[in-house]
Design a binder for these strands. Structure first.
Length: 850
DNA sequence: CGCACGAAAAGCATC
DNA sequence: TTTTCGTGCG
């Protein structure tokens, strides 16, 4: 077999030492240079925030290729997100004329998918297996629970899904789970049934992609040998975020004994792991920071390189980050430095209310924008999504364009999922999840009763819903038959059509398009369906599924082929060309439709809010990881918010919160704002919080307080409250300002190009928080407590709700509730660090702080 | 199959 | 503002 033919022949890389190679290393600092040009041995790169991690990773790949140490097919690079993978491919192709598309660079799941496509038979999967996203998985679990006649109250589908995913991420099949209590035993039974169901339907969930690949490598020596021979270099990005299974997976592809000085025989592999323990913020979803230390030990890492030079932020920002993270005990140890000079101080702002905080932020951001900063260079970060609403409201009312990350993504939208369900049924009518999703959508007279019967029948015979329709008699049965006919007809009618034509045909014959045409909110949905057609078109072009696409058999394993195929004409193994590895035996690649469905599951797409416009960026700190902005606002720096109350009780949780804060700080290039508020409306209740301990952990010299330092907590609020009272806008006036509308901002995509000028309606048109009519512009006092304040003022002990107090044992706190009077008087005080406490006022020594 | 409106969450979120 | 779910109607 011949090596595939490329225009830019990757098998003739620039000769080592040629100008090209030297140019690759140009401009790297000594540590980066060292990392990029390390010998082929295990290496751990501790890459601080903004230290050029991606550059090192991609240059390392380019360097390995350019110096002829490895062929494009001989290396694998793994990331967590599609974004990171794309970025790597993009940069790489800018550095070297290399056919990046066929290279094994991708997300863990994407690569597993590719692997399982090639070895589907060995893996015990149907050739066209489809992937369940989180939502599909949830409905699949629900069906299982129902089928087992279990109580959904006791076995909450979400929790069960989570349980199953967690087990898989620990590498445990049902029989491996140590189930001691009856509850867990039932969970395991559900897990078992769920697996059987998935297998029957020919679908796999995300965790299954990983686990199956791992198991296949573990149980198939020939396969293992093959891949270990093939991948001489494996690079892992964001290593601190790997979970147990991912690390074990890695060890299957490149076991420690094959690496470095322990390499056995001719088999010599190198793993290049890049990570930052200080940015490990995903323990809650199974990430094991400990993998870094394990890796260092198990692989006997001799090359540990720290990238501590930061090219992103000015000194004050870095000093703050360094000082903060120094409070963590569990660290590998790292300190960021810059040559950029101190830059501006970090600005700190104390607000009286979340509303006031939002107003301040709005003004400040507007100022920055007027000063010439693009809105897209301004980021507003918060710990939890619930915090975004006040700020959205403020921005919206001022007509400032903004973009909120983390909403519904394209392929998760209901109408898109419906469309995909039809397409999946065309591919595989036994996909019960998809069947149930659209069997009666648009409605075709198939009710719950009929579906019950159908599901019973299917359960009895162990067959799919599609296969069981004949078991249902009567009108319902006839309608079911009709639906099956629709799917069959669609499959016939679309045979041989292009992907675009298939989708268009489906949209028309399924009735989806007609349905949304008559629905009043349907215009958006139709646009999204059109967008789906575009996405498919783009996919076909981009992935080379056009008529010129060549299917080249690669990675076939079978007797006698292993040794042979390792070497191409010049002693280098050929790289796969097809985007998805073809069947290992036949070389057959998936149909464009099946491939597109896979793509849709593995890549949920962007959430499309406000894409393309210069808008202020709003997101949680988690989603900000990996991004950078000229100006960053970190808001809601309050105890119980950030650090979050659920994480405050144990050190591990607290340290993760601190790393989260570290990530947040290091997003800023030039200007960083930190803000907190004395009062905050959260879940309909006013909370009185103490400022975050993280603020106290920053170096005073790097900070500049925009509001008076050490102002008594609550005092500012109290003053404004009194003023408002005197103005006659007391409780009566303020009460109405409480938010009535609980919806997240759901804007209509307006047709005009110039959105953000007040045409969109985030609160469905109703007055939001401070919509301007009856809410005061500043100092909108918290509502329910206003009354309580008035009462408390009369009760003699001189305390008010919202009052800042000092307690000899617990320190600073804020009064959040007052009850009783005289000797009975008691107060609930939130001491932040110590949490809220009830105190008898006749005993406790509380000093008002003012 | 009973009843009502609205609605989606209480922490972060990749694939 | 308080609790729990899914979806649409008589």
């Amino acid at each position: 077999m011949h090596a595939p033919h490329f225009h830019d022949d990757p098998f003739s890389p620039p000769a080592p030492g040629a100008g090209g190679t030297a140019r690759l290393l140009e401009g790297l600092n000594p540590e980066q240079h060292a990392a990029v040009s390390l010998p082929a041995e295990p290496a751990l790169i501790l890459a601080g925030a903004g230290s050029g991690k991606t550059r090192v990773l991609t240059t390392r790949i380019a360097w390995l290729l350019a110096t002829g140490q490895v062929s494009p097919g001989g290396l694998m690079a793994v990331t967590f997100t599609n974004k990171a993978a794309k970025e790597m491919l993009h940069r790489l192709s800018a550095m070297l004329p290399v056919p990046v598309r066929g290279m094994w660079i991708g997300t863990f799941h994407g690569l597993c998918n590719r692997f399982l496509r090639a070895h589907w038979k060995l893996a015990g999967l149907p050739q066209g297996f489809q992937i369940l996203d989180t939502g599909d998985q949830l409905s699949a679990v629900k069906r299982v629970i129902k089928a087992m006649n279990l109580d959904e109250q006791r076995f909450v589908p979400k929790q069960v899904s989570w349980f199953i995913a967690a087990r898989k991420e620990e590498g445990e099949r049902p029989s491996d789970v140590d189930a001691r209590d009856p509850n867990t035993r039932t969970m395991v039974e559900i897990y078992r049934a769920y697996e059987e169901q998935c297998q029957r339907e020919g679908v796999v969930d995300f965790a299954e992609l990983m686990l199956r690949t791992y198991e296949l490598m573990r149980d198939q020596p020939a396969l293992r040998e093959h891949y270990q021979h093939r991948f001489a270099h494996i690079l892992v990005d964001e290593f601190q975020d790997t979970n147990r299974l991912q690390y074990r997976w890695l060890k299957m592809f490149a076991p420690p004994e094959n690496t470095g000085e322990r390499a056995r025989g001719t088999l010599r592999q190198s793993v290049f792991a890049v990570g930052d323990d200080d940015q490990s913020i995903y323990a809650f979803r199974g990430a094991q920071v400990g993998n870094m230390a394990d890796f260092e030990r198990e692989y006997r890492v001799r090359h540990l390189i720290k990238l501590e030079r930061n090219y992103r932020s000015f000194g004050n920002i870095l000093d703050s980050a360094n000082a903060l993270i120094a409070h963590n005990s569990k660290r590998l140890g790292k300190n960021l430095s810059t040559e950029a000079g101190p830059g501006e101080p970090v600005r700190v702002h104390e607000a009286t209310s979340d509303y006031a905080e939002a107003q301040w932020l709005l003004e400040e951001a507007q100022g920055l924008h007027r000063g010439g900063l693009a809105r897209s260079e301004i980021a507003i970060l918060y710990r939890s999504n619930a915090q975004s609403r006040v700020m959205e409201s403020a921005l919206f009312n001022a007509g400032v364009p903004y973009r909120v990350y983390g909403g519904l993504r394209f392929f998760e939208r209901a109408e898109v999922k419906h469309a995909l369900a039809y397409l999946r049924l065309v591919e595989n009518p036994n996909d019960d999840t998809s069947y149930l999703r659209v069997v009666n959508f648009p409605t075709r007279g198939i009710g719950a009763r009929t579906l019950e019967l159908l599901q019973d029948a299917a359960r009895q015979s162990g067959r799919s819903l599609y296969q069981s329709v004949s078991a249902v008699a009567g009108k319902g049965g006839a309608n079911l038959l009709g639906f099956n006919g629709l799917i069959d007809g669609l499959r016939e009618a679309t045979r041989g059509l292009t992907l675009r034509e298939i989708i268009e045909k489906m949209l028309a014959t399924s009735g989806l398009l007609d349905f949304y045409r008559t629905e009043k909110e349907g215009q958006d949905r139709i646009e999204n369906l059109e967008e789906l057609v575009n996405a498919a078109e783009a996919f076909v072009t981009q992935e080379g599924f056009g008529k010129d696409a060549v299917a080249l058999p690669v990675d076939e394993i079978g007797p006698g082929t292993l040794a042979d195929r390792r070497e191409g004409p010049d002693g280098i193994a050929p790289a796969p060309v097809a985007p998805l590895a073809p069947d290992a035996e036949t070389g057959e690649i998936m149909s464009p439709l099946a491939a597109f469905l896979t793509h849709a599951a593995l890549e949920a797409g962007d959430n499309q809010a406000q894409a393309g416009q210069d808008a202020i960026q709003m997101m949680t700190v988690h989603s900000a990881k990996g991004l950078e902005f000229d100006a960053v606002f970190i808001t809601g720096l309050e105890e119980s918010l950030f650090p979050h109350e659920n994480a405050m009780s144990d050190t591990d949780g607290l340290e993760e919160e601190r790393r989260l804060m570290y990530v947040a700080i290091t997003r800023a290039r030039k200007r960083l704002y930190l803000s907190y508020s004395q009062t905050r409306l959260l879940h309909g209740q006013t909370r009185y919080n103490v400022k975050s301990r993280f603020l106290d952990e920053l170096p005073e010299g790097a900070l500049k307080w925009l509001t008076p330092r050490n102002q008594g907590f609550g005092s500012g609020y109290a003053k404004e409250y009194q003023q408002a009272w005197q103005r006659g806008t007391g409780p009566g006036g303020i009460v109405g300002a409480g938010r009535q509308d609980n919806r997240p901002p759901s804007w209509r995509r307006d047709s005009g190009g110039d959105s953000g000028d007040g045409k969109r309606v985030p609160w469905g048109g109703r007055d939001g928080y401070g919509a301007g009519r009856d809410a005061p512009l500043t100092g909108g006092g918290p509502v329910p407590t206003a009354m309580a304040n008035a009462q408390a003022a009369k009760s003699g002990h001189g305390l008010r709700v919202g009052q800042a107090v000092f307690h000899t044992k617990f320190g600073e706190g804020v009064v959040i509730t007052l009850e009783g009077s005289g000797a009975d008087a008691r107060a609930q005080v939130n001491f932040g660090r110590h949490g809220p406490k009830w105190l008898a006022l006749s005993v406790a020594k509380l000093t008002p702080v003012d």
